[in-house]
Design a protein around this nucleic acid. Structure first.
Ligand SMILES: Nc1ncnc2c1ncn2[C@@H]1O[C@H](COP(=O)(O)OP(=O)(O)OP(=O)(O)O)[C@@H](O)[C@H]1O
Length: 656
DNA sequence: CCATGCAACATTTTT
DNA sequence: TGTTGCATGG
């Protein structure tokens, strides 16, 4: 198959409409026969196109049953998009197409009982996890002042990402903080067990455990999934790596696609070196490369590649393009974040003459930055769509109602229990006895939800005449309408836990429009593309984020994030930063991001501010000594703490 | 036992 | 800035 000459590739393209829109490199990858393969390719080179086309090709030309295809991606959105494309091409959908977490949830519902996980298990999100950690700290008589629950949780999560069980961790834990984390971890896992609950990390880890302990179950799934295809492989963690390896065996029909330079999830255990590990674990693996970029102009690619070339710890894949549009990247120095947003809004309105809003996006490092843009968009009537941010399902009233439902499904869920208890002991008692004494519950999900609301008298907590309460009640209505779409409560709960940060589909009219500008974090933009990209807030401390300045690897991850941001743009790229910015309510002087200095000058066209870029322009303005010194002392304290705990090695500490 | 108010506090990124 | 937790008072 792989020895096809260019001539017969052309033949194939002629014969199959499916294969027509592919270049030679893409086509060879799609046509890969059996056995392991990986596609290494930079941004916009058609990795996703190759993946979806290969699935279609397997199903139509190779007579592979859709039921034996496993297609894994990292977000539900990407999964939906891929499923769609495959369905358009073939009219069929793979047996499974979704995230690792969803796959694991499904497997554990089915077979988790073998390792003590009941089919009714609750899924704990980070709020639930934090609640659990806090309650354990209390139980252990450890002060939350001394042992920050968030820190405890992240240490536990890091351990889990390394697949360290509580027993394993016990051996490594050294020093006060780690020993405390160790004690918490031991209890934490016990509590999860008792509660019949699984946290995000355990969805993956417990599935690995299940496969290791019960080879017959593993075999069942191996048999089911003859072909395993994974997108964004640079972002798999240890458990995900093992899962793909286990599931692909014994035929090893593994097809992994990725780009080192787009690895942006190291902070949650992802490791791009897993892509290199494939070469060791599958010595015969066939490697494909795609080098033509179809998305961006040469100018944009030049900028992206100049930035990423400052990274030294991973390979960088080359790209070229035929889009030779000479338009330069606009760099704008804004006075304040409001000025920045005005600038962006103005240009969006200009672009509207030639582009739909949906082809424009504002990208930022942190979700908090979306606020000013929302305000100005509202003011100027620009329709927008906020992706991510304050999660609908993280809102208090929504979580409360979900906790009521969780208790309905799983009475052992102590986190849900104490949440309801906070609403009043009596209310909890009444609710529990209703659960215990009711013989027959309604059938429909929505009817159950309504019965639950009635029994708990939850709605009486709010007064619709108060603005704030009215909004909460509205959110509950929204949840009701979501509920009505599910056939049973467990699947409602699972979806709510696993579906990524859907924004509140609130009533503000600008949210309802289909043609709208997107507002999202760079992380959320991975895999997407837009004609016009506004990359905002390019300031030291914000991007790269202050919490990553101390470690070389974290800084490189920020740079990869910058690469991802730049490469989202098809034609127009606007980059901006401010001279001073409101941070937690206080004015702070800003410093231009170092990444801007890494972009070649000739690709840029400067607007705003008269000061040369790359200097500390604006920083002499309006500095607030208190604020700055507080932030700096926090930084060094925390750094020191991490060095002491061994999270940062001494060498890189001295490097800083 | 519960509601209310104020102060401290914290903030990256998300499955 | 928005939230969360704690202290106060009913
Ligand atoms: N052979 C081709 N001819 C024309 N356009 C193509 C071709 N291959 C891909 N494209 C287009 O290039 C763009 C980028 O493709 P795709 O999203 O698959 O790239 P990617 O490598 O997955 O990108 P990223 O790494 O950013 O996720 C898409 O708009 C796609 O339709």
């Amino acid at each position: 198959m792989k020895s096809d000459s260019a001539h017969s590739l052309q033949d194939l393209r002629e014969r199959s409409p499916l294969l027509k829109p592919l270049n030679d490199q893409q086509l060879s990858a799609v046509l890969h026969g059996d056995g392991p393969a990986m596609v290494l390719a930079g941004a916009g080179s058609g990795k996703t196109r190759v993946l979806t086309t290969r699935v279609a090709y397997l199903m139509t030309e190779k007579n592979v049953s859709p039921n034996s295809i496993l297609l894994v991606t990292f977000t539900n959105k990407a999964a939906a998009e891929m499923t769609n494309r495959v369905q358009q091409m073939t009219g069929k959908r793979p047996q499974f197409s979704g995230t690792f977490h969803r796959l694991c949830a499904r497997i554990l519902r089915q077979d988790g009982i073998l390792i003590g996980i009941p089919p009714t298990f609750s899924i704990y999100d980070d709020d639930d996890q934090l609640d659990l950690v806090k309650s354990i700290l209390k139980k252990l008589n450890l002060s939350v002042k001394e042992f920050n629950p968030r820190l405890m949780l992240s240490m536990i999560s890091n351990a889990k990402n390394e697949l360290l069980s509580p027993k394993d961790y016990q051996i490594f834990a050294k020093g006060k903080i780690q020993e405390a984390a160790n004690r918490v971890y031991q209890l934490y896992e016990k509590e999860l067990d008792k509660n019949g609950a699984v946290d995000f990390d355990n969805l993956l880890n417990k599935t690995v455990e299940l496969f290791r302990k019960h080879s017959n179950i593993l075999q069942k799934y191996q048999h089911m999934f003859e072909y395993v295809l994974v997108d964004e492989y640079q972002d798999v963690n240890k458990a995900q790596y093992l899962l793909t390896k286990m599931l692909a065996a014994p035929q090893n029909n593994l097809f992994a696609v990725g780009d080192f330079s787009q690895s942006i999830y190291a902070w949650r255990g992802a490791d791009y070196r897993n892509m290199l590990a494939l070469k060791t674990d599958f010595p015969g693996i066939q490697e494909y490369r795609l080098e033509q970029n179809y998305r961006s102009t040469q100018t944009i690619l030049n900028a992206a590649s100049a930035v990423i070339s400052h990274n030294t710890s991973h390979p960088i894949l080359e790209l070229w393009t035929e889009k030779t549009d000479k338009r330069r990247i606009t760099l704008y120095e804004a006075e304040t974040e409001k000025d920045e947003a005005e600038f962006v809004t103005h240009h969006i309105q200009q672009f509207k003459k030639t582009l739909p809003y949906s082809e424009m996006v504002v990208l930022y490092r942190t979700n908090a930055q979306s606020r000013v843009f929302e305000e100005l968009f509202l003011k100027y009537g620009v329709p927008y769509k906020l992706v991510g941010g304050v999660r609908f399902y993280a809102r208090k009233e929504v979580k409360d109602v979900l906790s009521l439902l969780r208790l309905f499904v799983n009475e052992h869920d102590s986190v849900a229990l104490s949440r309801i208890e906070k609403l009043g002991k009596k209310r909890l008692q009444v609710y529990l006895s209703w659960l215990a004494s009711t013989k027959k519950f309604p059938e429909k999900t929505l009817d159950i939800l309504d019965a639950v609301l009635e029994a708990s008298q939850y709605l009486t907590l709010y007064d619709e005449r108060l603005e704030e309460d009215a909004e909460r009640l509205e959110n509950i209505q929204e949840l009701r309408s979501v509920a009505s779409e599910f056939s049973d409560v467990p699947s409602l709960l699972e979806n709510v836990a696993l579906v990524e940060n859907n924004t509140l589909p609130d009533s503000s009219s600008s949210n309802q429009q289909q043609d709208a500008v997107s507002l999202m974090s760079i992380h959320a933009a991975k895999g997407l593309e837009f004609s016009a990209v506004f990359l905002v807030g390019m300031e030291e401390g914000l991007f790269p984020h202050s919490r990553s300045l101390m470690d070389k690897h974290q800084l490189e991850e920020e740079r990869r994030l910058c690469y991802v941001a730049i490469t989202r743009a098809k034609e127009h790229l606007y980059i901006s930063y401010t001279r001073r910015r409101l941070l937690y309510g206080a004015v702070t002087g800003s410093i231009v991001s170092r990444f801007i200095a890494e972009i070649p000058d000739h690709t840029l066209e400067r607007k705003g501010g008269e000061h040369p870029v790359g200097l500390l322009s604006g920083s002499q303005h309006l500095t607030h000594p208190q604020h700055i010194s507080r932030r700096f002392s926090q930084l060094s304290d925390e750094t020191l703490e991490r060095v002491l705990k061994g999270e940062i090695d001494v060498e890189s500490f001295l490097d800083m």
